[in-house]
Design a protein around this nucleic acid. Structure first.
Lengths: 191, 191, 191, 191
DNA sequence: GATGAATGAGAATTCATTCAT
DNA sequence: TATGAATGAATTCTCATTCAT
């Protein structure tokens, strides 16, 4: 499990709070937030039950802390787009979503979107950021023509939809999408 | 709530089993499966608690019955596509997903995809059917060119992603997608 | 399962009441009276749940009927003892307990002795009858000596204990007793 | 009720776990395991319902703990037999069964033999130990003769049967056995 | 900070029994 | 006589949360 917080480095055993979050991350990703008892978090974290509530007074605080500390939507100004090559720019975006989070945290992010506002918000910001980057990449790649703004926006939104759809439902339904091919398709549509 | 089962027509009060499913549909869509106690289903359905278990021995059976009886993925051979007009064909598909289910059932379908295999399966079939129809629509609309099969497939998959993404996450994140615009974009990409 | 009631002979399917008792016999012997739901009796008997209560208004009536109709302690005057051969007489008794009941009913008889007075009574009568027969066998077999009445009684009671212990606990604990050897031992003690 | 665990001595109120086992011991002996609700155990123990499940996650664990902690089959090498006096040796054995358990626990041991394997095992070991001791007592008491091993074994098994039969069924059927008289009978048979 | 016993509301499920048909 | 839906109290078990130490 990936933490965004610096851990006490080397071979040291992570501290109790970290172990609790590690356990919750695994369990929430597996069975879901509602179906995971705090007692099981404690057991897996190898901490006494009471300690979970010492760090996280209510169960929901564990989820909030996970989202807060272990997912990061990268909203940096500089986006690595390839000027003049829309397809390549989108492919890059696909290969490296502006989301720093472990696979488990990604599952939680999508799965528990209904559970708490903070999760939903994070997901919304991720979507927004992907759209923003896709838009930027396309703007940078394409010769500026008038009247293209709307179409470019649609392309960006579409690409974001494909990426998030893949992250979320494709894993469940077993379908597969090749983002590179989609990138090329979209680039072609705008070209 | 929409039932695929024929109800006892007219103003007759629906029978107990139907009322239970009606109540479950509303509650699962609202608070989610795990967070909904069977007692609340019974209360809303105005039946004694025991009757819920008379019809559905375990709680999960209520969810399975809902998916089973109140969602239908239309897998019919004839698809109404407009020959020669890819964009219009896709737009039509967007306007009428091959999914017969109430808005509440749609919410349940996406929300509880992790909860039980039967939900996941249904969702997978929905995705598959949308892809199939999009593919068919595009094949019918476009002049047959060699080597385009792959690109056409990508277009179909992309369109399906957009539609399902809209049904699922757009409602949560507050973003919006105009399927018609996406349809046009894709048609243009293949045109 | 053995019924003491005459069944409708030949290959005819037994009637509902009989099937209910057949099912109860098997289930009570297997899991015990308390742990057997009436619904399961109905299921195994392949009769609707309501019919069980038609024939047996309360659940305990099923057990009482079983004991009543499917166990018989033979309290007949004529006992086949071998005059002059105590060991042989006891052996015969062991080989044919004065209890007409299927193995399942025997299990129920011992297992549910605490559950209802009628079961306890039947068991008491069985014990009494075995003692009576053992006593009779020994009296018949042995030359009448004064002062031996008490010892003979002890022998009879001992033999009954061995037989019932075997029927009851030996089956559970996996131990084994050879009644013939015990018969010989006792005969020797009195000889 | 006798506990094999050391209690907090003196007039101190026993702790919650002990009170739960005390209550269960009384209730299981009275009405039987199946017929005793955990809620009644809690009530009698004067602890909240939840605490029963804190210590014993499933109801059966209460029974298992009782058997485990409150019955002990004494399997010690040294057996106090009276050399040369078989009858007396057996009488001693009868007077002090190698079973450390309260009368209530004895009732539970025999009554719930079908309920759980652990009970059955304990009962089996008790039977085995009694046989072993009876055998030892007789070996010690009797002059060693050839070919008597089998008869001695039968005698031991018989005596064990009588003792356990008395503990178990005699209480139910109302019959009575005088172990001393049986001891004498057996001694006489081997004498 | 750490701990695990304690709490009790409430969850799922069971089940004997009733009853209208 | 036959049926299975209906009932609701009771039962086992869960679990977030508190709290004394």
């Amino acid at each position: 499990m990936g933490s965004l917080r610096p851990r006490s480095g080397g071979a040291t055993e992570p501290d109790a709070r970290t172990r609790i979050l590690d356990a919750a991350e695994k369990l929430f990703a597996g069975g879901g937030y509602e179906a995971t008892p705090t007692a099981e978090i404690a057991r897996l974290a190898q901490v006494p039950k009471g300690l979970v509530f010492h760090y996280f007074p209510r169960k929901i605080d564990v989820l909030v802390a996970l989202i807060d500390e272990r997912t990061l939507v990268e909203e940096v100004p500089e986006v690595e787009a390839v000027p003049g090559d829309a397809a390549k720019s989108l492919s890059r975006l696909a290969r490296r979503l502006p989301l720093r989070a472990s696979p488990a945290m990604r599952r939680i992010l999508f799965r528990e979107a209904d559970t708490h506002g903070s999760v939903r918000d994070r997901l919304g910001r991720l979507n927004g950021e992907i759209v923003r980057r896709a838009r930027f990449a396309l703007e940078l790649a394409l010769p500026t023509r008038r009247g293209d703004a709307a179409r470019l926006e649609v392309a960006a939104v579409t690409f974001a939809a494909v990426l998030l759809h893949q992250e979320n439902l494709c894993q469940l339904t077993g379908h597969h999408i090749d983002p590179d091919a989609v990138a090329e398709l979209i680039a072609h549509a705008l070209g």
